[in-house]
Design a binder for these strands. Structure first.
Lengths: 225, 225
DNA sequence: CGTTAACTTGAAAGAAATCAAATCTGGTGG
DNA sequence: CCACCAGATTTGATTTCTTTCAAGTTAACG
């Protein structure tokens, strides 16, 4: 479609599982995500890998702080996705514009903040708290995009979530079921509905609010009469 | 001592426990550490805090990527320490020198790398692996400074180590004892001697190399005869 | 429509946290 | 100089949480 090339420099389409860029490859461009979903994955020197973040439409993938020359992690499509491709030369030019620069800085700062919160979460919170954190974060991101109502279609698998939170997929699955059974959410595979954000926030804050074993949620609060 | 003000712009002395700067305070300077030891601590929005790094003499503390305006974490002296104080103005001036800039970039890059390795470690490795990682890292840092021989005087408490690794102080203590009992290290409180770096590397790589319960290290390999 | 990958759920094992004493250390004041 | 104290560390016993192992179930895709 030659007629379309008005403002858009370059586009790229990805299918689920496609690698947008790979860790340690030279940084040639960055990628504002238009549709779909992407996961960021870091592979350590020993070969252990960990999902370090999820990108939603509107996020910019591949922005590296301190203009490094190689990507610090890989980006992999979770579903069919479309993104723009902004070459580093184009980026350099845009950086002259202080508004663009400020926006970029803001993005990098948000990323760094998220990364720190994740570290603390994994390092010192229980499984339920971590998951509650992720769900609240997802909800907030959707809200920031105007997609309200607490309905989220998860792009990632349980394995991805587990990796991100430093858990196993079984624990994530059980926890989601538990959250649902106490009325915090509803889930059917990828379709998530956040029913009680305040309740989730309590779970996030209180280590003992929800446990995997614990007493089953009371079916009848008058049972003892 | 007015005679001393030849090249040194400003110095600062800290006692154990002193706060060099606090998270969210405006960035007015950064601090090349001369002697002593410093821990970096991040406090999350919910009040959970976590040690995110240790600085040794030669490290520069308080360097923030992407010239943000407030510190992303606090820096606290682990022992009596001395550091230089480089104001941001002075820093701006030095940045004209491309050598300084390159060095700064290199430092920031190393930090980012460490941070990622830590995240993966905490997220997907067992306690023994994490501790082995830290010990190897400490040894490497000392080597990088020419202080060889595997002897390390730890500046941080077990609580700090535990927080850094996402464990409890008891687990750290037990693990150190275990490492010692199998001949990987010797420890007497803060004095650590790394006897078998290769063995530690194996522990780091293999989840099941060392466990807390496991069989006691064989006193006599011919016991069954 | 069948095959495969993703997900849920249960039971058991294992790892680390928690609770609870001891022990050691360095510093303080007598 | 020594006794004493608070903080740091070790060690043990027990509990709790999460993982691991093992089936099933459901959903997506060719």
């Amino acid at each position: 479609m030659p007629g379309e090339s008005t403002l858009v420099p370059q586009r790229k389409h990805l299918n689920a599982g496609d690698v947008l860029f790979r860790q340690n490859q030279p940084v040639l461009a960055f990628y504002p995500l238009r549709t779909g979903g992407i996961k960021m994955e870091y592979e350590s020197s020993l070969g252990w890998r960990q999902v370090t973040g999820f990108a939603l439409p509107g996020d910019t993938v591949g922005l590296e702080p301190n203009d490094v020359r190689t990507f610090s992690m890989s980006a992999i499509a979770l579903q069919a996705s479309d993104c723009c491709v902004v070459s580093v030369e184009a980026a350099k030019a845009s950086m002259a514009d202080s508004a663009v620069q400020a926006a970029t800085q803001a993005m990098l700062r948000r990323d760094a903040l998220r990364q720190h919160e994740l570290l603390v979460a994994i390092g010192s919170m229980k499984a339920a708290q971590r998951l509650a954190m992720l769900l609240l974060d997802l909800a907030a991101e959707h809200r920031r995009r105007g997609i309200d109502g607490g309905e989220v279609m998860l792009a990632m698998t349980r394995v991805d979530i587990a990796s991100y939170l430093g858990l196993t997929l079984e624990t994530v699955s059980r926890l989601l079921s538990r959250f649902a059974s106490v009325g915090l959410i509803t889930v059917r595979h990828r379709l998530l509905h956040i029913v009680d954000p305040a309740g989730l926030a309590e779970v996030h804050a209180d280590p003992d609010r929800i446990t995997l074993r614990g007493p089953a949620p009371e079916q009848n609060r008058f049972a003892s009469f």
